[in-house]
Design a binder for these strands. Structure first.
Lengths: 337, 337
DNA sequence: CTGAAAGCGCTAACAT
DNA sequence: ATGTTAGCGCTTTCAG
């Protein structure tokens, strides 16, 4: 059951290879033959079998995404799914399908090895959180097309793409200076929260460049929670001279920060400005709403997809790149110009 | 390149069909032959080709999820990804892979038709938001294994699974009564917000059953936003007698509700209790934190996966079902017993 | 319990 | 520009 390429060939009074060529848009087919064949395909309601094509071509036109999708991920890490959505969009545009597979750091390597050995996909995108040395070694050894979503925290030869958080930090700095904030504070996650650390690096660098270096007494690190955001801000406000603006490494911290400031009766943005990273829905739950440095994670996914398809076509291509599409969304928590 | 089943057969001094049988755990193979073959497979580092298997078997062991993944979906609709994560988990456990494809209502039918005709997947899960009459007709006509995630808003013969929001409403009612709340209010989305409407139905039914029917003056419908939650609550608080507790159809509305109550200096939960549906991260951003009726969407996805695999095995099986795993998460916004 | 052989539907090298 | 044909690697009858 099901009409095959043979039936089409027969009905179009031509050979299967000709039909195959019109399916694949081979240049050597005359327009009239092509049209005749296409007409027959339509009449017979013919669609090439996907598995037969994969099998014969030796390519699946499918890419896998390996990420840890434990319960609650959708809520705790919406960025991940925004990346995946971006990947899917671009992959689809390029004729690839997206296979989503969950794996934690312990089994990602096994999952990847299975896919590679069974040739069930043409390429693999792995979220950095499940990246390990064995997996890195596997990619190096097999030369299998891959891209890591995020920079691995160890030296390796794998292909990766990451946001440039340092850059985003400088964007924050430039914005603040442009709004006449010069005595700036930062509250963020601890050293192992690389994103936060990099954002601080960039902020520091940017402020220094503009001639307003960060004062270390204005830098506090804690957990990425509302509670710690609150605590850190209290410490900040205990200084003899208040900072003019505080930069929060993420939305959770920012919520605590705003609460602490307002609890002391300090007006935002008149007395003190607040700038946060990321644009989660609740960046608009404060009054005033938060000005944020928004990083386009969907775009990140789309770029990752572009690189991965390039790598699939040129397996020896190695890419390690920072790519950032970020913008300031100016709302009420900072002074307007 | 790549070791094939032939190589294994040769090395194991047996036939390819025997090797195939041990790969697939066919009963007719003696344990010693099987072990010998397995040993050779290990030694040769043999993995069966996924495409060749799909091709020969005529089954892909893959299921597609069709949903609208437009920009921002990860933030606006985390439930969707929680469902997808659940689907993936159970499908993987059953030997199926999950293909994620974005489509809007306009092109979902075309996408599904393509998959069906090309036999590129064994089953399709479609989010109800992209469900249309043509797609419904396609499923009916093709008898292709499918499941709709959510109940279509039109009569049809498709298989679907949905949460029972009416039931969740009664859960809310029972909880409130158990906490001695009898004069209860509800604020939620308008009539076209089916989820909200059903939750209200259930609440109404439940309260009535317990002998404390809802007073219509205590029911307000608006947009599902913080702002409207605030507005509706203000109206509620303008009544001569205050309700003892207000039920909010979702987290956004609840945030506005809490703000309005506290602005009037009314203590939660002492003066008035608040109960919300869903457990978004920001249900814990209020003080006190919100008691919620949490609906386990990951479980929903897992159940959908179970049904879909069943349908794949029994294509004539028709399932239209409500399934709800919900529980009260008691926090500070309602009285403790 | 094992093996021989006929496909599965398409691609691509090669011949014409 | 078109056709012939040999695979692609596995599953699955069917015979032994």
């Amino acid at each position: 059951m099901g009409v095959t390429i043979k039936d089409v060939a027969k009905a179009a009074k031509t050979s299967v290879s000709t039909v195959s060529k019109v399916i694949n848009g081979h240049y050597s087919i005359s327009e009239e033959t092509a049209e005749r064949v296409r007409k027959v395909m339509r009449e017979l309601n013919y669609y090439p079998s996907a598995s037969a094509q994969s099998f014969a071509r030796g390519a699946t036109k499918t890419v896998a995404v390996l990420a840890d999708l434990r319960p609650g991920t959708a809520f705790q890490n919406p960025h991940m799914f925004e990346i995946i959505s971006g990947l899917e969009e671009t992959l689809r545009g390029r004729g690839y399908r997206l296979l989503l597979q969950s794996a934690d750091a312990a089994d990602a390597c096994g999952a990847a090895e299975d896919m590679i050995q069974r040739r069930s996909v043409d390429g693999i995108a792995v979220h950095v959180s499940v990246m390990t040395h064995p997996l890195s070694a596997l990619f190096a050894r097999s030369r299998f097309p891959h891209i890591v979503l995020g920079m691995p925290d160890f030296e390796s030869q794998v292909c990766w793409i990451d946001n440039n958080n340092v850059y985003s930090g400088t964007v924050a700095a430039s914005f603040l200076v442009s709004r006449n904030y010069t005595r700036v504070a930062f509250i963020g996650g601890k050293y192992y929260d690389l994103g936060s650390a990099r954002r601080l690096d960039g902020l520091r660098e940017g402020m220094k460049t503009h001639g307003y270096p960060l004062d270390d007494r204005y830098v506090w690190l804690g957990e990425s929670t509302r509670e710690d955001g609150y605590r850190m801000t209290c410490r900040l406000l205990d200084q003899k001279t208040l900072p003019e603006a505080v930069v929060c490494a993420n939305n959770y911290i920012a919520l605590g920060c705003v609460a602490a400031i307002q609890e002391r009766g300090l007006a935002i943005p008149d007395k003190i400005g607040v700038l946060a990273f990321d644009d989660y829905p609740f960046s608009q739950f404060t009054e005033p709403k938060l000005t944020v440095v928004d990083i386009d994670m969907r775009d990140f996914g789309k770029r990752a997809a572009r690189y991965l398809t390039e790598i699939i076509h040129h397996p020896t291509l190695q890419i390690q790149t920072f790519v950032t599409l970020s913008k300031i969304i100016e709302r009420g928590s900072t002074l307007k110009k």
